[in-house]
Computed example of a mutant assay.
Amino acid sequence: MATFNALLVEKQEDKSFTRSVTQRSLDDLPDGTLLIHVHYSSLNYKDALSATGNPGVSRNFPHTPGIDAAGTVVSCDDNRFKKGDEVIVTGYDLGMNTAGGFGEYIRIPSDWALAKPDGLTLREAMVIGTAGFTAGLSVQGLVENGVTPDKGDILVTGATGGVGSVAVALLAKAGFSVVACTGKKEHESFLKNLGASKVITRGELLENKERPMLKEQYAGAVDTVGGEYLAQAVKATQYGGTVTCCGLTASDDLNVSVFPFILRGVSLLGIDSVQCPMPPRERLWGKLADEWKLECLDDLTEEVTLSEVNGKIDAILKGQISGRTLVKVQN
């Protein structure tokens, strides 16, 4: 424990950013009540933004990204956990301005962590990670708003991405008919193996985008990209349906009239996984470990080592990654 490996992002004098796996010390970690030996993390789009110096995500450098971490407790100053407990950390400030899961150790406030449910391994928990947890919140939002499988198809945008791919699988497991929208039509078989009943292209979704309303096609939608794709999802949702919104990789603008809301009673539900309170967080993780546990986790996952993360950061920013990228952190 004198030193450990971590991916370190450093800001150079010319304001560029470099990344390398290097040796760090526990003294380099921030203050906190809980010290965790990280076994696994996962790569999310936000991690790539942090690793390239995006000021909307991370401002303090040098810095170790990784908004997800699963591992074992080394010590806990407030006795909330005991040594050896297996815990999961997603969200809060982890990997943003607090050293994150791309290092073998993290030190955080103990109330950021939850006990790993018995139905999941640490590895499975990080295949799910923030992306899968967000997908779970989205599916749960549809269900709690009265969307049921008998009411029709559910649209998922950005379906090959981390959130989208898990959403497709979760919805299919819950009995929904899923229409997966992607810019990677070559991955149609991948999406159908996850449970999608139909795969459409972005171009198909954007047809007639100038219209204020579209034909009622979907009982609900999980939008992961925002912008005109979210607008089209709202306009094509049937009476009383619900659209969840959790991403903005396409755009943070939403150009849509009020017609779908006041003429069809469509609900738009925002999804936030970062500050989700601990009680509902624990309940959903319990569901993901039990009735919503996915048998296809390995099918949507590529496992890499800490030294291999660097190249994957560039790939995810270019939209070249499908499914989930699991990071094996522990030596």
Rank of each mutant, 00 (worst) to 15 (best):
A231L: 03
L300P: 00
L288N: 03
G265E: 02
L263Q: 10
Q238S: 14
A233T: 00
A250G: 00
R283E: 11
V274P: 08
A289G: 11
E295K: 13
L269D: 02
S273C: 03
E291C: 10
V304K: 15
C276T: 08
L263W: 06
C296K: 14
K293F: 04
G270N: 11
D253L: 14
P280D: 14
V234I: 15
F261M: 14
L297K: 05
G241Y: 04
R264K: 15
P280S: 12
C246H: 13
M278Q: 15
L248E: 01
P279E: 09
G247L: 06
T242I: 03
I271D: 01
Q275L: 14
S267D: 05
K235P: 02
L300V: 02
L254K: 12
E282G: 03
M278F: 06
G270K: 14
K287M: 12
F261R: 09
F259S: 11
A231E: 00
E302I: 12
G240C: 05
T305Q: 12
L248G: 13
T237A: 03
K287D: 14
L268S: 03
E295A: 11
D272A: 13
P260F: 14
V274Q: 12
C246D: 00
S273T: 00
G265C: 14
L268A: 03
V304N: 04
G247N: 08
G247H: 09
D272R: 11
T305R: 06
C276G: 01
G265V: 06
A233Y: 01
G286F: 07
E303M: 10
L284Y: 07
P280N: 07
E295C: 01
T237H: 11
A233M: 02
C276E: 03
E303S: 13
A231Y: 01
E282I: 10
V266C: 03
V304A: 02
R264C: 03
Y239K: 07
V304C: 01
T244L: 10
V234M: 07
G270Y: 08
C246L: 08
E302H: 13
I262K: 07
L268E: 00
D252T: 14
C276D: 05
T237M: 08
A233H: 02
R281S: 07
D272T: 09
V256L: 04
E302S: 15
S267H: 15
C246W: 05
V274N: 11
L248Y: 10
D253A: 14
N255Q: 09
L284S: 07
V304T: 10
C276P: 00
